[in-house]
Design a protein around this nucleic acid. Structure first.
Length: 269
DNA sequence: AGTACGTCCTGATCGC
DNA sequence: TGCGATCAGGACGTAC
């Protein structure tokens, strides 16, 4: 679920909750997704005693900066974070809990257990495999053109490749492509520089618009809104029988590497 | 290097 | 209404 706007909203949420300056006193983690290290828990056994000094993000990757090292967090498809108070009941699908020195705790909930958590020395090992963040100034139209113009895969698939540009997921890839009238099946190397320039702009507009909406609509606990792909604010309602917001034509779907693309057969040539 | 595909896991939705 | 089948917004590893 969480793409760039959702992860960024989580970062902002954590900062608003004033977790910076807090020290992690204890970690409760026990699930398959993080056992791929010597201590069997993503290196998290070394976390107690470390202080949180900041929060950053690249693409869908969230980093809690520590006084030594960095805590890498990836929400996968269904992950979400919550800052909890002592009296709060644990969330139903909490997989990892970080206890803080002010009695609060950060819970990572993830029904599907695809989230990732790991203690790293620095973010570099993860950032090194990523393209520029889609909202960073380094992601220019020229950068998109350079990274895409030699790819023969469908543009939809290329946009989901985090090593091309980091932060775009299935939803916003479809949103951006609809915005510029490009069919998801079109080979990336067949797009003109003009089209790619427009696509670059559409990507940023889609992400920024979503981020603003999410931040402005927290849930009853003050947590970032969870994007609902059927939500009215999305251009493309990902539901059978949905229609194009511009022309009313019934949307079609097509699979790319197991991911479903929604598009308007009339507006997206 | 780039591409295609299977796989991790479980809740929600679909279709009969 | 009930229930099995299908689907889901991510990303990695492997094989070609």
């Amino acid at each position: 679920m969480p793409e760039l706007p959702e992860v960024e909203s989580l970062r902002i949420y954590l900062l608003e909750q004033e977790i910076v300056g807090r020290t992690i006193t204890e970690v409760d983690a026990d699930w398959p997704g993080i056992e791929n290290t010597a201590d069997g828990m993503g290196g998290l056994s070394a976390l107690p005693g470390r202080k949180i000094t900041g929060a950053s993000r690249v693409g869908k990757n969230l980093f809690l900066k520590l006084d030594r090292g960095v805590l890498w967090l990836h929400m996968g498809m269904t992950g979400r974070l919550a800052v909890m108070h002592p009296d709060d009941e644990p969330l139903r699908f909490t997989r990892t809990t970080f206890f803080l020195d002010d009695e609060r705790r950060i819970e990572l909930e993830d029904p599907r257990r695809w989230a990732g958590v790991r203690l790293e020395e620095s973010p570099d090992s993860i950032i090194g495999n990523l393209g520029p963040d889609a909202l960073d100034a380094s992601f220019t139209p020229q950068e998109l053109i350079k990274r895409v113009q030699h790819r023969r895969s469908p543009i939809k698939s290329v946009l989901l490749d985090q090593s091309v540009v980091a932060g775009i997921g299935n939803i916003y890839a479809d949103e951006a492509l609809h915005r510029v009238g490009i069919r998801p099946s079109l080979r990336a190397d067949r797009l003109s520089t003009q089209q790619l320039t427009e696509l670059h702009s559409a990507i940023r507009t889609s992400l920024l618009q979503a981020l603003r909406y999410i931040v402005d609509h927290p849930d009853e606990r003050g947590r970032p809104y969870v994007v609902d792909a059927y939500d009215d604010r999305m251009r493309l309602h990902r539901k059978k029988g949905s229609t194009c917001p511009d022309c009313g034509t019934k949307l079609e779907t097509q699979k790319f590497g197991g991911r479903t693309a929604y598009f308007c057969p009339k507006c997206q040539a």
